[in-house]
Design a protein around this nucleic acid. Structure first.
Lengths: 209, 209
DNA sequence: TCTGCCTCTTTCCATCGTCAAGATTCGGTG
DNA sequence: CACCGAATCTTGACGATGGAAAGAGGCAGA
């Protein structure tokens, strides 16, 4: 009889449940359509229950963004390591491209969350965890660029990290907003994305040489 | 006595007034903090008055985004023509860079509006006017790239237009979100932006050659 | 002048985020 | 094992919001 009742008074993992239902809700309704009450409803608790786990709705959104950045970092490293394993040539350059692929794939799979992460709506809270998670992603970018041009000056590395991050982020952002490739097939869009990534990587290599 | 009373029953230019107060409100409160009632309040009318001019709050936001795109296009062409006038050399390439400067300057001057324009929150309405205004901006990008590499193939032109648009858009987006150059001076940030623009332009030229 | 239409106000409703108060359960202490 | 404070959740309430409905004010053409 120790097993939990169908609807125990104490949820036990409400914070996790809210993060999960909140994420799904965000993708469904978008940032403006996101409501705390609906989020609580889906988690099976009353509308005021989230208050104990999250100070405000912005606090919950900040948590979602934080987890998004962590997952984004994981997606980038996973794709990069996959490239390391199968690549016979290319090395650090193909790793940079693969990391960009991971970035784009995450954004394409979680468009609303991705938008939240890079909207200042989430950054209003400016929690330390959010800042740290976002910085980790930036560091991944910087490290991948650095590996391609290890002998370049610090300033060149910074400029190229700007460049690489901006290209990848801008492309997928415009794509998700429908500003690029309106009615093209998914296959064609991937080709355009890869084309952009290789142009980006070539530029990084060329400028530093 | 024909002059309008202090608060005539019929506003006369309410649509314009709402667009103006809405724009200011958007920059002040951000997308999530934007409310129709506050917007009406600032225009000096009751909270239900906007209903006749805008079907919904999303419709008003779509109008703001549409005007934003028109203004963005104007800022790009103005900066590009300014560059044409003073440039002794460079020609089409310096024009491409200048157009990017205009793009970034508009975004930096209207961060919340810029974010709205490229958030799918506005695009949910998908009004024809909004689509047309956004397309005009895209065409400006494409035309500037085309002028730099007139002899390239159509596919290369498209890829380079993607590349140019993505770089510029990504950089200023990340900058406005605080993901780039956290505590750098405004001067340093402009230098980084110009550096990115020239790297972008060089890549466009190089790939097509 | 009169009449119909456009514009705006007032009123109302369901929903929202947040707060306060009460109910329930948990973990540790006696 | 009994008890009690703290943590967790529910209920109820408040002001604010977007939108709908109904009515009042003002304009233009017959």
């Amino acid at each position: 009889m120790a097993r939990p009742k169908a609807q125990p008074y104490h949820h036990g993992q409400l914070r996790e449940a809210l993060a999960a239902s909140g994420r799904a809700l965000l993708e469904e309704k978008g940032i403006r359509g996101f409501t705390l009450r609906e989020c609580a409803r889906r988690a099976g608790v009353s509308h005021a229950a989230p208050a104990y786990h999250f100070a405000s709705i912005d606090d919950l959104l900040a948590e979602l963004a934080t987890r998004g950045f962590q997952e984004l970092a994981a997606a980038m490293t996973a794709e990069a390591e996959r490239a390391d394993g199968e690549a016979v040539e290319g090395g650090s350059t193909s790793r940079l491209v693969a990391q960009g692929v991971g970035y784009m794939a995450f954004a394409a799979g979680n468009p609303a969350l991705f938008q939240l992460m890079f909207s200042r709506e989430a950054n209003r809270l400016e929690t330390p965890a959010l800042a740290a998670a976002a910085e980790a992603v930036r560091n991944l970018h910087a490290a991948a660029v650095e590996a391609v041009i290890p002998h370049a000056s610090g300033e060149i590395k910074q400029r190229m990290a700007d460049f690489a991050g901006a290209s990848v982020h801008g492309f997928i952002s415009l794509l998700l907003d429908g500003q690029i490739g309106g009615k093209d097939s998914s296959r064609a869009l991937k080709a355009r994305g890869l084309s952009l990534l290789s142009a980006m990587a070539e530029t990084v290599v060329r400028v530093a040489r």
